[in-house]
Design a protein around this nucleic acid. Structure first.
Lengths: 173, 173
DNA sequence: TAGCGTTACTTGCCACGGCAACCAAGTACC
DNA sequence: GGTACTTGGTTGCCGTGGCAAGTAACGCTA
């Protein structure tokens, strides 16, 4: 297993450093804005968004976990916190008493809609607004296979198949 | 401040979802590999790499913080942990008794070099190996301005100017 | 219907990171 | 030279996430 791995050339290195740096700063920036703007984390925002675009505003816990790239314990705790704040509710799943459905409440929807404009503004200001249309295409073309690879790698079982299914942001609100 | 923010079109949305997803999964994947391979986190890896390419294998605490996109408290704690494991040492800074220099120890260098092949292999397998040369160029061109914007945004004071200075990975070992 | 393995979560314990408060050393001003 | 302000770094407390263990329901076999 000590196969020789070639070092990075210039283009590789630049792309990698930019990607790693972005992965470091972006989540913190998103959290900061959403937290300040409406008291939710970016992860909560993603969860609320996913619920908002689901039929009946409801998803199975494990479905929601996949859609948000989260482990089940993490999601469980986050849902408990959001439930305590009245943003979502757990409803028993008819037909399977082990499972539970997470439902977006009216207040949860309000919080999401409240957060949305600031979120979109930030995303546009920091990311998509800085890129031309072809650059956006190229970015998507480049990162989609990467995302898929990460999501499908058996070494990282957290978000199995999350890439394929996570077609849910509030980007189409 | 309630200026109307346009929704995302298809290219924007794809690029954004891919970027956010990647930012979610990539750090966890890097941590998992490095942790398993040599017992360090990706953040520690970055810190060790930065020290490794510094003159005298030494950097001021706050310099290292900038280069790793870290807050000072975070870095301080991580350094304490690494110091306890013998990977780095704190040496008083001549000329300014408040500051301290962080120095990579021999063991720290060993840990870094031990981690490096697996890390490069993972990066290649999941990311750069999946992209063509033009795609790598495009990725770098797209993300560099984003990174710079994030690092320079006064709303996110954590890593002021980190983008410009963080030309240090172990990519050139 | 009893028992066994599996699935769908939930909980406990621990490690890590953020913020705010703190301390110590430098600097400015008089 | 003393007093105020700033800079560089560390510490305490708390919130959050991971992993491993626990629990409850399902489903298959006999």
């Amino acid at each position: 297993m000590t196969t020789r791995v070639p070092r990075m050339n210039d283009a590789e290195s630049r792309a990698w450093l930019a990607l790693v740096g972005t992965s470091q700063l972006l989540p913190a920036a998103l959290d900061a804005q959403l937290q300040a703007d409406s008291g939710i984390t970016h992860f909560e925002f993603m969860a609320l968004s996913a619920l908002n675009t689901a039929p009946e505003l409801t998803l199975r816990t494990s479905d929601l976990a996949v859609r948000t790239y989260a482990t089940l314990p993490r999601l469980s705790k986050v849902v408990s916190r959001m439930e305590a704040r009245g943003l979502v509710e757990r409803v028993p799943c008819p037909g399977d008493a082990r499972a539970s459905n997470i439902r977006l409440t009216r207040d949860g929807r309000k919080a999401l809609l409240l957060a949305l404009p600031g979120h979109l503004a930030l995303v546009r200001a920091e990311v998509i607004g800085r890129l031309s249309e072809p650059q956006l295409e190229a970015l998507a073309e480049a990162l989609e296979p990467v995302l898929e690879a990460l999501a499908d790698d058996p070494r990282f079982p957290w978000a199995r198949g999350g890439a394929r299914r996570a077609e849910t942001d509030a980007t189409a609100g």
